[in-house]
Every structure is written in structure tokens, then in C-alpha cells.
């Protein structure tokens, strides 16, 4: 019994030390779209920090810039101004090739419309990124099988996306995002195309991953109920950081 308590204390201490480290540091982010001479500000002067092991929800009304913010933090787009440090590395000024490598090794993505490759089975969709890292066939297949089992799709590994339900496809997409053990998992409205049961399951899975393995998660959502499941909600309105609260 004493041993058990001690083990829990150590675990909690390691979680706390993890949480104290800042993994994302964004300063004065600005994203402007140019249409001829017309400038449209999608993001204006946004600064934020996200700690390692945090589960953060980015919320706001439609067109507020929440997805744009996620795309900047997740290296899918380049901000017009400002800096982003991920794990103390300046990621704004990386070359195209370096950004790709960084995404492969450090980041994972879950999109609103799953965005699986239709020609690949669930297993193949998941092992394509570890395969690209150059590990052995046995290793990447095992990794992919294990993670698919973890998201509850152990019996669907050889199915193509067209043979899976929306919820199942989203779970494959989560497995793909997690297979390389990314430092940060980015999820862009992951429940928007799902029914309420699947939505609940997906957010529950995120919470579970965050708690069990300390996975840092940055999730865009417009559902307050889902946002409340996160450690913290960052509110964005008209491209400006509105409220940032626990």
C-alpha cells in the first residue's frame, strides 16, 4: 500500500514537472491575407504560451481566426509577423524541408474531415509516417497496430477509409497523429463531422491520452462542452486573443 502511494506521488511529481515546461511560445502573431490592395487580418498581435502536457482548447465564433491560429502553431502556415518557439526552437524561420521534418517528428494532426488517404487501409494510413522515418517494417507495423488497438480499432486495421464510419475514421486519424509519439497533437474541430456519441468518444479519448501519457493537445472547437473538458480555453475573437482562462 505504501509502495503504491509512493509510486503515485512520483507519477504526480513527473506530471507536474512536465506541465511547468513551456512547449509553445508564440509572440505577437499576425496573419494577414492580401487581396490586391485589400488587407484582411486573420490574426492580430496574438501572444500565448502552452505548457507541456496541457490540453488546451481554442474557441471562438466562426471566422474568429481559431483555425488560423492552430495552423500557425502547427506549422501548416507561416505567420506574416511574430515568432513561434516550439520546445525553444524558432519554427517560423525553418526552411520548407525542415518544417516538413519537424512536423513528421514532433507534431501530430487531426483534421475536421479526417483527411485519411483513401488508397491506404487504416493500418497503412497510420504507418505511413513511421515508415517515412526509416524504421523497420516490423517496427512500424507493430507501432501502428498497437496505436490502432489503443483507439479501439484493433479489428478494423485492414479496412479502407470508405469502409469505416466517420467516428472510426476520426479514430484512425488520431492514431495516425499519435503513432510517432508527437510532442504536440493539434486537432482542428475534430468532432465537427461526427455525431454526438462519436464526438463525446473523441474528446474522451483526447482527455484520456492527456491524462495517461501526458500528451500535449491543442484542439480547436466551437462546442463549449468539449472546451470545458480541456485544462484551459483560449478564446479568439476577430483574430485577437479574447480571454485565456483555466
Amino acid at each position: 500500500m505504501t509502495k503504491e502511494i509512493q509510486k503515485n506521488k512520483i507519477l504526480l511529481a513527473s506530471q507536474k514537472s512536465k506541465i511547468s515546461k513551456i512547449i509553445i511560445n508564440a509572440k505577437n502573431l499576425e496573419r494577414v491575407y492580401f487581396n490586391g490592395v485589400i488587407k484582411t487580418y486573420a490574426l492580430k498581435n496574438i501572444s500565448l504560451n502552452i505548457k507541456e502536457g496541457e490540453f488546451v482548447a481554442i474557441m471562438g465564433p466562426s471566422g474568429s481566426g481559431k483555425s488560423t491560429l492552430l495552423h500557425q502553431l502547427g506549422l501548416l502556415d507561416i505567420p506574416t509577423k511574430g515568432t513561434i518557439l516550439i520546445d525553444n526552437k524558432d519554427v517560423v524561420n525553418l526552411s520548407d524541408g525542415e518544417r516538413t521534418k519537424f512536423r513528421l517528428k514532433k507534431l501530430g494532426y487531426v483534421f475536421q474531415s479526417y483527411n485519411l488517404i483513401p488508397e491506404l487501409t487504416a493500418l497503412e494510413n497510420v504507418y505511413i509516417t513511421p515508415m517515412a522515418q526509416g524504421i523497420t517494417t516490423e517496427e512500424y507495423k507493430k507501432k501502428a497496430r498497437d496505436i490502432l488497438k489503443k483507439v479501439g480499432l484493433g479489428d478494423r486495421i485492414n479496412h479502407y477509409p470508405s469502409e469505416l464510419s466517420g467516428g472510426q475514421q476520426q479514430r484512425v486519424s488520431i492514431a495516425r497523429a499519435l503513432v510517432n509519439k508527437p510532442q504536440i497533437l493539434f486537432a482542428d474541430e475534430p468532432t465537427a463531422n461526427l455525431d454526438s456519441d462519436s464526438s463525446r468518444e473523441t474528446v474522451k479519448l483526447f482527455r484520456q491520452l492527456n491524462k495517461e501519457i501526458g500528451q500535449t493537445i491543442v484542439m480547436v472547437t466551437h462546442e463549449l462542452e468539449e472546451g470545458k473538458k480541456a485544462d484551459r480555453i483560449i478564446w479568439v475573437k476577430d483574430g485577437i486573443l479574447d480571454v485565456d482562462k483555466k
Binding site: T100, K101, L104, Y109, F111, I117, P118, E119, I128, T129
Partner: peptide, 16 residues
């Protein structure tokens, strides 16, 4: 085109 974008997003090199 969309699949090419997805592959790039998840970290597959342009050359691949």
C-alpha cells in the same frame, strides 16, 4: 491535390 496536401501536412517530404 488534397491527398498531396495531407501527405505534406503529416510530414511526408515533397520529394517523396
Amino acid at each position: 491535390r488534397k491527398q498531396i496536401g495531407i501527405l505534406k501536412a503529416i510530414g511526408i517530404k515533397k520529394e517523396i
